[in-house]
Amino acid sequence: MISKVTEALKTDKKVRTVIFRSEVPGVFCAGADLKERAKMHSSEVSSFVSKARATINEMANLPVPTIAAIDGIALGGGLELALACDIRVAATSAKMGLVETKLAIIPGAGGTQRLPRTIGVSLAKELIFSARVIDGEEAKSIGLINHAVEQNEAGDAAYRRALALAREFLPQGPVAMRVAKLAINQGMEVDLLTGLAIEEACYAQTIPTKDRIEGLLAFKDKRPPRYKGE
């Protein structure tokens, strides 16, 4: 299901920001079904994890900003899914962790790579080695999430905060947002000199756009810009 949605989102130029949330109360994503996993042959497990990894990679490569709204449990693959998003927002009561070592396996859908890139190598090792589950407050304190919010009666506080963030992103130039994400993502994987060259190449993509001229005209006329993603 997620794979089909991400495939459609990749080519939809009208989409400006994507929020990943769950409509199941108290659960963002609890990870793999362990009862189902226990019935699988070892070759089936490898295939299952490969598909999960590919799907999460597709999420990470979406060209627009992505926000994970964690209003409940995000364990194992559920946290790996959230880690693939650009920004994470969680309720303070949410529980999250990469718990795979407790089951004698390791995070296999990007967790061992994205967690250290998010919170640092040493802290990531501690969380993965201990299979520790932390709440939203601790997750915020270590930089795992951007915002921690008190849960509300409806149980969707993180989603509401994610919506508020999305509304901050929407007025900006669509082409600029896409190439800014590309420049950051690619630049973080290389040395600074190469990263600056990537930034220069990405900036060059914005120069010939109609939106850039519209932004200048709007500033001159003291009005909100009307960007079209062109």
Rank of each mutant, 00 (worst) to 15 (best):
G120P: 03
G155C: 04
D156L: 06
S42Q: 15
T101L: 12
L216A: 14
T194W: 02
E44K: 10
I134H: 07
L123S: 13
Y203V: 15
A166S: 12
V175D: 00
I134R: 11
K210N: 13
T6A: 11
A69S: 11
D86H: 10
R226K: 13
P107R: 02
I119L: 08
F219E: 08
I87M: 13
K39Q: 12
L170V: 06
R16P: 08
D86P: 05
V121Y: 13
S47W: 06
Q113D: 13
R37D: 12
K39A: 15
S22M: 02
I70E: 00
P63M: 01
A157K: 08
I207T: 14
A84E: 02
E150Q: 15
A158P: 03
R114A: 07
L34P: 08
I145Q: 01
F28P: 03
K95H: 08
I70A: 01
K181C: 01
C202R: 09
E80K: 11
G97C: 00
N152W: 06
P174C: 00
L216T: 09
E150I: 12
M177C: 07
R53F: 04
K125F: 08
L75I: 11
K222P: 07
Q205M: 13
L193Y: 05
G111H: 03
L144H: 02
I105L: 12
R178I: 00
E200Y: 07
G143L: 09
Q113G: 07
S42W: 10
T112N: 10
K228C: 07
V64R: 08
R132I: 07
R160K: 15
L170P: 09
H147M: 12
E36W: 10
S47D: 08
T17A: 15
L127E: 07
V18H: 01
R88S: 14
G110I: 02
E126A: 15
E80S: 12
V15L: 00
R16E: 06
S42L: 07
R212I: 02
G155N: 04
S3M: 10
H41G: 11
G173C: 14
A183Q: 05
A91P: 09
H147C: 08
I67E: 02
G155F: 03
N152K: 14
R212Y: 06
E150M: 10
G143S: 05
T209W: 01
K125Q: 14
A91M: 14
A104I: 05
H41L: 15
E126G: 08
G97P: 00
T92F: 07
A74K: 01
I87F: 14
A109S: 12
D135K: 11
N61W: 03
E80Q: 13
K140I: 06
M96I: 05
A148I: 01
T92M: 09
Y227S: 02
N57F: 02
V179W: 01
R160H: 08
T55A: 15
G97T: 03
I67L: 04
R16C: 04
L115Q: 03
I119R: 07
I198C: 01
